[in-house]
Amino acid sequence: MPVSSTPQRRNARHLEQHPTDSSGAAGRPGRALSAAERGSWSATASFPPQPRNVALARRLTRTALAAWGVPELADSAELVVSELVTNSVRYGRGAVSLTLVLTDGALQISVADFGRGLPRVRRAGDDEPTGRGLSIVTAISARWLVTTRLTGKTVSCWLDR
């Protein structure tokens, strides 16, 4: 699974460690950055549409958020990633791509595949084991949308910080 994580800021400087840092950056070089200094972070992974890769996508999400100093988003993000990647594996076509983008205001989670079918929220019956994924995404995220492309679709959602 190819993975990349990129800081999206220019002219980053290593600064002295701040003694009252509550971001988890203590013990690492530098100090916690202010909102203006932080910019955004992104991580991208692409993998074959196999069910076992849903767990890898969750692990990537948890690892990236811990590295970026926002582990408090991990549980919600991991659940959303699990639902979106599962939908792509189950109903999409071709490789699945996961992109995480952390800004000062939100975490954007995007999952892309080559399928043409559009996801829709549906009401699953009490006895149905599936069909609640997008309802969960709707309940957890601030908003979500689907972007269609010539070669498939991307489902994106935002978790407020």
Rank of each mutant, 00 (worst) to 15 (best):
M1N: 01
S5N: 01
P7W: 02
P7M: 01
P7H: 02
R10D: 15
R10F: 14
N11S: 08
H14Q: 08
H14V: 15
E16C: 11
H18K: 10
T20N: 15
G24N: 06
G27P: 03
R31N: 13
L33D: 00
S34L: 12
W41C: 05
T44P: 00
Q50S: 09
N53L: 07
A55I: 03
L56K: 09
R59F: 10
R59L: 14
L60E: 02
L60M: 06
L60T: 03
A66S: 11
W68K: 03
V70S: 02
E72K: 13
D75S: 15
E78C: 10
L79N: 09
V80W: 07
V81W: 02
S88C: 13
V89D: 01
Y91A: 09
G92Y: 01
G92E: 04
R93C: 12
S97N: 06
L102W: 06
D104Y: 06
L107C: 03
Q108E: 15
Q108F: 12
V111K: 02
V111H: 01
V111I: 04
D113V: 00
R116Q: 15
R116L: 15
G117I: 08
G117N: 13
R122T: 15
A124S: 13
D126E: 14
E128F: 08
E128I: 10
E128M: 09
E128W: 10
P129I: 08
G131P: 03
R132H: 11
R132S: 09
I136V: 15
I136A: 07
T138Y: 06
I140S: 07
A142C: 07
R143Y: 09
W144G: 04
V146R: 04
T148A: 07
G152E: 05
K153V: 13
K153I: 14
V155H: 02
S156T: 11
S156G: 07
D160G: 11
